[in-house]
Simulated scan of single mutants.
Amino acid sequence: MKIIRRKSDLQALTGNWRRAGETIGVVLTMGALHDGHLSLVKAAHSRADRVIVTIFVNPRQFNNPEDLAKYPKTEESDARILGPLDVDVLYVPEPEEIYPTGFSTTISVSGVSDGLCGGDRPGHFDGVATVVTKLLLQTDADCTFFGEKDYQQLQVVRRVVADLDLKTEIVACPTVREDDGLAMSSRNLRLGSEARQMAPVIGRVLKSAANVIRQGGNVALALETARQALLVAGFDAVDYFELRSDSDLLTLTTADQPARLFVAAWLNGVRLIDNMPVATERSAQKVAAKLVEPV
C-alpha cells in the first residue's frame, strides 16, 4: 500500500491505471478506522480493480472548533489496519491540497440537508458536499462507498453527484454494529467505559420505536416515548428523534411510505447518531400500487 499526500502524485498513478483500463473504487474517511470502514473497503474490492482509501479530517464540516480538536487522529494505526486488505493507496492529503490559498468555493445542497444534523450543525453539509466533490475528482473515482449509518450524509452525496453530473457511482452499504447493537463510529472512541456500556440503549430504543410504528402505533407518541426513554436511561440530551421519508427525508407523521427513524443524542459529551428503516403494511401497499401504475 502506497501512502500518498500530494494530489499530483496520486493523479499520476491513477492516470497509469486508466491507461491500463482499470476501474477505481474509493472509500472516503476521516480516519480512526473501525470494522464499519473495513466493510466498505471490502465492498470496494468487489466492485473495482483498484482501491483508494482517503483520510482527511475536514475542518469545514465541523461547526464546533472543540469537536474538531477532539477528533481522533490515528494515521499510523489506520495504515496498519489497512495493510492486510490489499488497499492500493492510502491518500492522506495535506490541507493545502484540498483548500489551497484563495479557495473560495462552497457546494451547498438544499432539501435533503434540511433538519436532522443539518439543523443542529449549521454549515456541516456544505463542508461535506464540498470535500466529497473535491476528493471524488482528485481520486478519479468510478465508485465510492458510504455506510447507511450516516444516512443523511449519504443522501446529500447522492444529490451532489446527480446534480453536478459527476461520473462516480454511489454505493450504499449497511450499517455495521457492535455485538451489543451500537452502530460503529469513530466517535465511540471518546466514550468512557460507563458511557460505552450505556450507549447501546440508543439502538434498542430505535428498534422498539420502529416496531411500534410498523405495527400501526401512533407515530407522535412513539417518538416522544423514545425520546423520554433515552433521557431516563441517562443520555444528556436528545437533539432529534424523527420519522422521515426514506428518499427525500421529508418529515412524516404517518408511515404510509418507505421511511426511516433518525436519532441524535448526547452521552458523556459525545453526539451519537443512528437510524433504522421502517416498512409498514401500508407503505408496502403504496409501493406495490406505484409499481403497477400505467406509464
Rank of each mutant, 00 (worst) to 15 (best):
K2F: 01
I3K: 06
I3N: 00
S8W: 01
L10Q: 00
Q11A: 02
L13F: 01
G15Q: 08
W17T: 02
W17S: 00
L28K: 01
L28C: 07
T29V: 06
H34G: 10
H34E: 13
D35G: 12
G36Y: 02
D49L: 01
D49I: 03
I55E: 09
F56P: 11
K73D: 04
T74K: 13
L85K: 04
D86L: 10
Y91P: 06
T101D: 12
G102I: 08
I107G: 05
I107H: 05
P122M: 10
T133N: 10
L135N: 05
L137K: 09
T139Q: 04
T144I: 01
T144V: 01
G147N: 01
Y151I: 02
V157A: 03
R158H: 05
D163W: 00
L164H: 02
D165G: 07
L166K: 03
E169I: 07
R177S: 07
E178Q: 13
N188C: 07
N188I: 03
L189R: 15
S193N: 08
E194W: 04
P200F: 05
I202V: 14
G203P: 06
G203E: 10
L206V: 08
A210F: 12
G216M: 09
G217F: 14
V219N: 07
A222H: 06
E224W: 09
T225G: 03
A226E: 00
A229V: 02
L231A: 10
V232A: 13
A233C: 04
G234T: 06
D236G: 01
V238T: 05
Y240N: 05
F241R: 04
E242K: 10
E242R: 07
R244Y: 04
L250K: 14
G269Q: 04
V270W: 00
L272V: 09
M276N: 07
P277C: 15
A284G: 06
A288I: 11
